[in-house]
């Protein structure tokens, strides 16, 4: 029985990969797009509103004071800016971190799993002084908040 199940999975897998292979050869998909469900479009989008839409499907977000952004007022090193986001919005499922002044505004998207609290923390790069924008998805709505961070040495290099 066990072998049968494995065989099925194997067959299913190889069928799927040959379809993918065909798609690559046909030039329909670039190998990079196949790596994961990583949302390449949203991570390449230069426009903040479009990037948020690409990630959450939502066109407009409401500003909310229930989102708390912890980030330094002045970042001496733009290469490492600690940012933590906490949301008091009920039903939070996704937390996005953006820096609109960066070459690529979308920095990270955290999708909360079962039992996860509405909190995420990471270190981000900031090219120059600007806002850190947090976007919270709850249900089919999105909410935003922002905090200004002054960067003395940019972290996007060049």
């Amino acid at each position: 029985m066990q072998t049968n199940i494995k065989r099925r999975i194997f067959l299913k897998g190889s069928a799927a990969s040959s379809v993918m292979g065909a798609a690559i050869t046909a030039g329909l998909l670039t190998p990079q797009a196949l790596l994961a469900e990583w949302n390449e479009a949203a991570f390449k989008e230069k426009d903040v509103v479009a990037a948020i839409k690409g990630m959450t499907g939502s066109e407009s977000s409401e500003e909310s004071d229930k989102i708390h952004i912890k980030a330094p007022d002045i970042a001496e090193n733009g290469g490492v800016v600690p940012v933590s986001i906490t949301s008091d919005i009920e039903g939070t499922t996704q937390i996005l971190i953006l820096a609109p002044n960066n070459p690529v505004p979308m920095i990270a998207a955290f999708t909360l799993g079962e039992g996860a609290l509405a909190f995420a923390r990471t270190n981000i790069k900031m090219g120059k002084t600007g806002d850190v924008v947090a976007v919270i998805k709850a249900g089919d709505k999105t909410y935003t908040a922002k905090k200004a961070v002054k960067v003395t040495i940019g972290g996007c290099g060049g």
Partner: peptide, 13 residues
């Protein structure tokens, strides 16, 4: 269970 899945970009330190 998946407790967290995060998508990152080159904008993370």
């Amino acid at each position: 269970k998946t407790r967290l899945s995060a998508s990152l970009s080159g904008g993370v330190s």
